[in-house]
């Protein structure tokens, strides 16, 4: 079972890296001989560095649902911090909030910690186990609510069922 899974994963990675190669070369198919070397090397590197299975699937539906949310939130995040910087009163009332996620997968956790930094008013700092320390400019309540919302969407994106997501 395992070898089959391994090759499927490798094939998937190779497909993504081939896309990257074509994008970089401007869609030049005449470069296949070097492209093959690049894709093979990148696939070996990505599988060798992290031999353990991912434990998640990238879901198409989740991506379609996540992308508009991400764009909307990062623009409003930019606006929020820009206004805080430019307004003469400079409204800042920072506090540190610890948020415990139910995401166990390290990739999903890392993704979430990074995206938290792009949401309005929150910055993902230390990750302790499954707890993310959030530096919040919008108070503890809104930071926690935002993180909970994001957590659901990340679980959806990675095809994970959250344990105890009641």
């Amino acid at each position: 079972m395992l070898p089959q899974y391994f090759t499927r994963r490798a094939a998937l990675h190779a497909l993504v890296f081939s896309g990257l190669w074509l994008l970089l070369t401007g869609g030049d198919f005449g470069t296949w001989y070097l492209g093959a070397v690049a894709v093979a090397a990148a696939t070996v590197v990505s599988i060798r560095l992290f031999p353990e299975g991912p434990g998640w699937r990238w879901t198409v539906g989740g991506t379609v649902r996540f992308a508009p949310f991400f764009v909307r939130q990062s623009i409003s995040g930019g606006f929020d911090v820009a206004l805080r910087a430019i307004r003469p009163s400079m409204p800042l009332d920072p506090e540190l909030v610890e948020y415990e996620t139910s995401l166990e997968n390290p990739t999903a956790l890392a993704f979430m910690a990074n995206v938290v930094s792009l949401l309005p008013g929150t910055l993902g700092t230390e990750v302790k186990g499954r707890r993310i320390v959030i530096h919040s400019l919008v108070g503890a309540r809104r930071a926690t609510d935002g993180a909970r919302d994001l957590e659901t969407r990340v679980a959806d994106l990675f095809g994970l069922s959250r344990e105890g997501s009641a």
Partner: peptide, 26 residues
């Protein structure tokens, strides 16, 4: 706005807010 935040914000954490959000949106 990111540069203004970098200069005006009072500590390293608030400045990081302007680094990640304002400049990436820009």
């Amino acid at each position: 706005a990111g540069t203004v935040g970098l200069l005006r914000f009072p500590d390293v954490y608030t400045r990081l807010h302007s680094l990640t959000k304002a400049d990436n949106t820009g």
